[in-house]
Simulated assay, not measured.
Amino acid sequence: MPVRRLQQPRGWAWTIAVAILKPVLLATTRQDWHHGERIPATGGVVLAVNHTSHVDPLTAAHLVYDHGRLARFLAKSGLFRNRFLGFFLRAAGQIPVERESHGHAAYAAAVDAVRAGECVVVYPEGTITRDPQLWPMTGKTGAARIALETGCPVLPVGQWGAHELLAPYSKRPHLFPPTTIHLSVGEPVDLSDLAAGPVTTEVVHAATERIQAAIVAEVEVLRGEKAPAERFDLRRARAAERAAREAQESERLEDRDQKQDTGDGGDTP
């Protein structure tokens, strides 16, 4: 039974999604939810959640729905390119994120949704964590910017267990025995001092760090262990990978040129 009954209209897309997906989730997962009552019954709010599996949105939506709200996700635009899936997602109020536009349209849509009293779910990492132990990575600024623009509460949500139901980037779910999904909703992140002044780049990054730290704290409680002192930085890791590839290519070309100079790399007259 839901903890708090839904008060807002579902619409046809949510009616179909709940009829199909909720029985599947109830059959394949067990719910270990903490402090879901902190999700406000009404009004605009942002839930900021860590990301470990492609099934995360389903388990998060389950938590939100059973606490009387409909979740509006910022989802990759590729999902909307399929004619039928895109039609369904838009009907369910989901928000496409276009990478080429640097998220400007998605940000504006999310702000409008919050101002309209919706519950918007954001994954600040932007993608499934690449941390080897699946700890939250450094966060992007979307959740912070939405909160600073609208003044809405930001609730950090730690989740653990979805990766056991569907491993990162896997296509084969582990359906039985049922996986326990741990979700913990934290107290609203205090951004009042940051919202009092101009919204500068420094302010946005400070707000982002507070939100991400609050998410990590919730995950630490669920996992019963401390997170690494330094969060995995995906941009830095990708830059290091690019540098390594470029160094390898440079070394390969240099080796080829040396062989050609000494006559070892091609035909000799």
Rank of each mutant, 00 (worst) to 15 (best):
K140N: 12
D193N: 11
A162C: 13
C152P: 03
I128G: 00
V204F: 06
V203R: 13
L134K: 08
G161M: 01
A167V: 06
E125H: 08
A147H: 03
I211M: 02
E164P: 03
P188L: 03
A147I: 04
T201S: 14
G126S: 09
A162Y: 01
R172G: 10
E209M: 02
G151N: 13
T179I: 04
T150V: 08
E164F: 06
Y169V: 10
S170A: 14
S184G: 06
W160E: 04
V204Q: 07
P173N: 05
R210G: 05
D193L: 12
T208L: 03
Y169K: 15
P168C: 03
S192F: 11
R172T: 15
E125V: 06
G161W: 00
P188Y: 05
I128F: 04
S192Y: 07
C152S: 09
D193G: 03
T201Y: 10
R210I: 13
G197Y: 06
W135V: 10
I146V: 15
V203M: 08
T208G: 06
T138S: 07
K171N: 15
T138A: 10
V203D: 05
E209N: 12
M137R: 01
E187Q: 14
T150I: 11
A144T: 07
G151E: 11
T180Q: 12
R130L: 13
A195T: 13
I181T: 05
R172L: 14
P168E: 11
T179V: 12
T150E: 04
L175K: 13
P132L: 10
M137E: 14
V154W: 02
K171H: 15
S192L: 10
E125N: 11
A143M: 06
G186K: 01
F176E: 12
P198E: 15
A162V: 06
F176L: 15
P124W: 01
T127W: 05
Q159I: 11
P124G: 08
A144D: 02
R172P: 03
G151D: 14
A162H: 03
E187D: 15
L166W: 01
V154Q: 03
I181S: 01
V199W: 06
G151Y: 09
P153G: 02
L155T: 02
H163Y: 14
R210L: 14
T150H: 06
G142S: 11
S184W: 00
G142W: 00
G158E: 01
P156R: 05
V154Y: 04
G139Y: 00
G151K: 09
V185K: 00
G142D: 02
A144C: 12
H163Q: 15
H174P: 00
A147D: 04
L175A: 14
R130P: 02
C152Y: 03
V189A: 02
T127C: 02
P153L: 05
D131G: 07
E125I: 05
P153K: 01
Q133H: 13
P132F: 09
E202F: 08
T180E: 12
A167L: 09
L134Q: 08
G197R: 12
A147T: 07
R210V: 09
A206H: 05
I211L: 03
T127H: 13
L183D: 04
S184H: 11
A196Y: 13
Y169E: 14
